[in-house]
């Protein structure tokens, strides 16, 4: 490997102001004792940062894209089909991206020992799935619309319906974990996690939209959710920001 290749290392774009949440966000109480207090050190994007784990299609199994069946039966709740594209900031699709999802059941209950039993578990709903984007960056899975759930952040606090998404892009620094919300959810204005993203337009990108195109008659409502991963800098010099 020649020196030129190193000098030519193109980093990933730094976020536009206001488009990512701060670590310390007092309305979300759990940030108070977990956010770093010292300034972060600007990390140059070296070979270690522009590479990242590459998963093969053997990372997923048949049925991983269908959350509506478990333990020999069908889950209760409104069936949904969630689909969209994973793109880079310049609009290029991200193929072979591993997408992991998890969520509460239709009653807002997670299959987890720490989740308060405010509503029953559904024996036929586990709440996890995995998909990989195709060559056009498209993904699709079938699930149940999750219910809102109460949490202890403040008095009468409710999380809006959401699905957790975890994505591996092409690089260590393109890792993304986010939550997808639903168009028209009345709880969104009151949710500190959703509102931790300062920029209103960036915040709205987390809301999926109802989609006739993918709605299947007599079966499921479609929701569309595109995900944008960080893109590359045009030149190596931008590395310095």
């Amino acid at each position: 490997m020649g020196t030129n290749t190193i000098l030519d290392m193109r980093g990933y774009r730094r976020p536009e102001p206001g488009t990512q949440p701060a670590y310390l966000f007092p309305p979300y109480k759990s940030t108070l004792r977990r956010a770093p207090t010292k300034p972060l050190v600007l990390l140059p994007h070296t070979l270690s940062e522009v590479t990242g784990p590459v998963f093969g299609h053997d990372a997923i199994s048949p049925g991983d894209d269908d959350l509506t069946h478990a333990n020999g039966g069908e889950a209760i709740g409104p069936r949904i089909i969630v689909s969209g594209r994973v793109l880079e900031e310049d609009g290029r699709p991200v193929p072979n991206a591993l997408v992991e999802v998890w969520q509460a059941n239709a009653g807002g209950r997670y299959r987890h020992r720490n989740c308060q039993p405010h509503s029953p578990l559904d024996p036929n709903f586990n709440g996890y799935g995995r998909v990989m984007t195709n060559s056009e960056g498209r993904y699709r899975f079938q699930s149940i619309k999750p219910g809102p759930y109460p949490w202890g952040n403040h008095s009468n606090a409710w999380r809006p319906s959401h699905i957790h998404f975890s994505l591996f892009g092409p690089a260590f620094v393109s890792r993304l974990v986010t939550q997808m919300y639903f168009e028209g959810d009345p709880l969104l204005p009151f949710d500190p996690i959703y509102n931790s993203i300062p920029d209103e337009n960036a915040r709205k990108l987390l809301i999926s939209s109802f989609d006739w195109e993918t709605t299947v008659p007599d079966h499921a409502n479609g929701y569309h959710f595109d995900i944008v991963l960080r893109g590359r800098n045009e030149t190596p010099m931008e590395n310095k920001r």
């Binding site: 774009r13 976020p15 536009e16 488009t19 990512q20 949440p21 979300y28 759990s30 793109l87 880079e88 900031e89 310049d90 609009g91 992991e100 999802v101 998890w102 509460a104 997670y110 299959r111 987890h112 720490n114 989740c115 586990n126 709440g127 996890y128 799935g129 957790h164 975890s166 993304l176 974990v177 986010t178 939550q179 996690i193 959703y194 931790s196 993203i197 337009n201 960036a202 915040r203 990108l205 987390l206 995900i227 944008v228 991963l229 960080r230 893109g231």
Partner: peptide, 17 residues
């Protein structure tokens, strides 16, 4: 030029996924 999707916490139940 698209805006990169914002991050959100993994939350307390990430083990599920």
């Amino acid at each position: 030029k698209l805006t990169a999707t914002g991050n959100q916490t993994v939350g307390p139940y990430f083990h599920i996924g």
